[in-house]
Design a protein around this nucleic acid. Sequence first.
RNA 1: GGGCGCGUAGCUCAGUUGGUAGAGCGCCGCCCUUACAAGGCGGAUGUCGCUGGUUCGAGCCCAGCCGUGCCCACCA
Length: 918
Amino acid sequence: MSDERLSELSERTRYSPREVESKVFARWEEAGVFSPEPEGDASENFSIAVPPPNVTGALHMGHALNGTYQDVLIRRARMRGQRAKWIFGTDHAGIATQVKVEQALANEGTTKEELGREAFIERVWQWRSQYGGVITDQFRQLGASLDYADERFTMDDAYARAVAEVFTRLYAKGLIYRDNYMVNWDPGTRSAISDLEVEQRRLDDTLYMIDYPLESGSGSVTVATVRPETMLADTAIAVNPGDERYTRLIGERAVLPLVGRSLPIIGDEYVKMDFGTGALKITPGHDPNDFEIGRRHGLEEISVIGEDGRMTEAAGERFAGLTTDDAQKAVVKALREGGCLAGTQPYTHDVPHSHRSGMRIEPLISLQWFCDMEQLAGPAIDAVRDGRVRFSPERPHTQVYRDWLENIRPWCVSRQLWWGHRIPAWYRGGEIHVGTEAPDGDGWVRDEDVLDTWFSSGLWPFATLGWPEQTEQLRAFYPTDVLATGRDIIFLWVARMVMLGIEFTGEVPFADVSINSTIMAPDGRRMSKSLGTGIDPLDEIAEHGADAVRFGLVAMSSTQDVRFSADRVRQGLDLANKLWNASRLILLGVQQGVEPSPDRAQPQHPADVTESLLAEDRWILSRLERVTARTEAQIDAFELSSAALGLYDFFWSELCDWYLEMAKGRLHEETGVRSSPDRRSDSGPETGVRSSPDRRSDSGPETGVRSSADQRSDSGPPQRVDRTAVSATLLFCLDRTLRLLHPLMPHVTEEIWSFMPGERGLLTTAQWPAADPRRFDEHAEAELGRTIAAVTELRRYRELAGVKPSAILPARLVGGSLDGMAGQIARLARLDLAEVDRAPVAEVPVAGGAVELLPSDAFDPDEAGRRIQAQRDKLADEVRRLEHKLGNERFVQRAPAEVVQGEREKLDEYQRALARLG
RNA sequence: GGGCGCGUAGCUCAGUUGGUAGAGCGCCGCCCUUACAAGGCGGAUGUCGCUGGUUCGAGCCCAGCCGUGCCCACCA
């Protein structure tokens, strides 16, 4: 490392994401690592198609979490050496975009109708060029390693050709057809919408009882309705054929009040005998159920409500032109005056509303294009059933997906909008031609409507790669590996991609579907602009850095919805800062020249570099392998939250809190045990402190960076200091930690990486580590487990006994099993193990033995004795609890032997400890 | 109406095949120990929604109840 960089590292005591992140991101982009060559095939490569954000949208928390999930997977794959393509692009988002542009026009005092269709669409394209790049920049700020250089848009020419091709082929197969059918009409957008775009809202309403006189003159039938205005389109009355009250009426006729139309009374199983009056007015033109009944019975279909939400001429001149609300009032008034209103009652029920405009859905019969989904659904169900597509978490999504597909209904795909993929159908008189090009001959008129946005979104994983052309991209990256998204669009998008993917490519579009948490506002409500509950991820990035936001979001996520936790983001920033500072300690403190081999693919393991590893070195190296293995498994299972928190815990609690503290002694040239306040004791280790078989002393003790070890070792008294092992171990741990954390926190790790010794290139293309189980060291883990427990116990004792933190207590280890770690125990618990000949004044029981405290000014045994009563009580409680448990014959007999044995050992240990304290 | 979740420390949430309840933040005490005070060390805090059952043993399994949320659905 150059002196310049060294002093830079030395001076920056705080990690500043703002300065680092954009700089680091630029290095990745310059290196072109986000854009893999389209070589090889999809089985060896790795790809994810990003859920395309709305072209004029802005990054929200959902994008940030979802994006981080994908980026972790993509970055890991890239580090594994795979060609990793994260397919990027935006969605034209038909209605959403059209509404925005219409609003802009309204502000200018004009409308799209004044502009005309062509000019309006031109205007939308302008809008897109103005705002389409916003979300791209925002993904960059998040650090997302999308293939920005190969951006797609669902309205690109090539994409549009794919859409038309799909429509045409489905039509040819008879799966797409045009029909007059009942649709969900949204008076807000003046378009039909699909079932999935309808949401139910609870409404307090009124149920009206209306008498329909029988034509025979012998009384009347009373029906119940919440929409009396639709009676103007009634064409029948239906009763349940099994309803004894009415069976005699079936086949008779009634007179429609206000209108005078003669209505047949029909029998249909659909009618519930126990609801309302048991008699149902049938309005095939304005109610989905009535529509079905009407078709079953061949009833006339009358429309009295128009696409503008107002009553049509067919409603009669008293009502034509009124809104449905006004018409309802007028109808009720007229009925009341005519004596036909038998009564009303309050009624609360669910009413369909447009998800998009919020307006009440008006069921209408309309000429629309439909896609018959049943044939497409079968293979999509199979794909999930046989595991070619897997949901994570498996439940409940797998079942929900299957249930929906098994009960699938036709999909209304036409929309009465201007912005979108124009339906590739041409008409001339009664002729219809469907195809990507207009047919020859004059007089053909193209369909005015566009396709549902989700129709084009459903082709996303393969249309982005050039389908229907057999492109290199398609061969290299389709099928994709993972789809990561939220549960809200499993039907709208995921299921349709599976169906269309299988239909048109013969393969499932992705193998895994990772469903990530929905991030709720801190108060538990949905995050939304209109509620004022939204938290802008960009604000969080500006304040805490992208890595902190990435860590925080992933850490707070789970298999269910979670509330946004600012603390988790803060925790992410703290982690970044801690990483930075631990790295400073390591990089400024290690002996030069012992860095892992410059071969950045596989750094040399410290055990292969030196034979003088100590127990703590072997311990942390073993823990490192374990966290490596665990992280890998967790990412494979899409349990990124566990992976993030597991890495945090390893790094902070094990590497920093314990290993780095232990390592400082050797880094700062201490010779093992500090036996006296003297810093430079040459007396060497006492009491058999170190277990290492052979301690070489060929390296220098100075704290300076430039080692002059070789000169030193030849002169003066032998220094029993070897910084090789600790340096190699520290660098190896840091190297590995940076690699493991890089997919999640790419900026800070890349920045630190740049200070690592050797020519290592970019971390983002360095090799992803694989755990080596041969490096697991049960022995060292057990020994350090005892050491850590002992130190903690001693610290607790000191605190309880009122010993000053700075005081160094003369002490002696007894019991033997801690001897190998005596030096570290002495350092960390601030003991002086030098004096051996005085009688102890107190004994502290610890895991694996005990520590005798020798007389000193800093320790008052009487005071200590009084204070540790609480500890004694606690031990006594444990002993009692275990004695009771082991005294239970049924437990001893029936519990597994190892459980009983474990309890016995614990009891034994507690009893011995208590005896010492007693 | 059907289905699926959730209810664990003051807050937000983890709790893998049942074996003495965890994290972050917050709180209390002590430390400016030259990587980090956005730090370190130590500590306190939970009848794991309620009731019953299975089991030697239940936060975890079973039944019921209460509270709460989401998804689906064509009862006027």
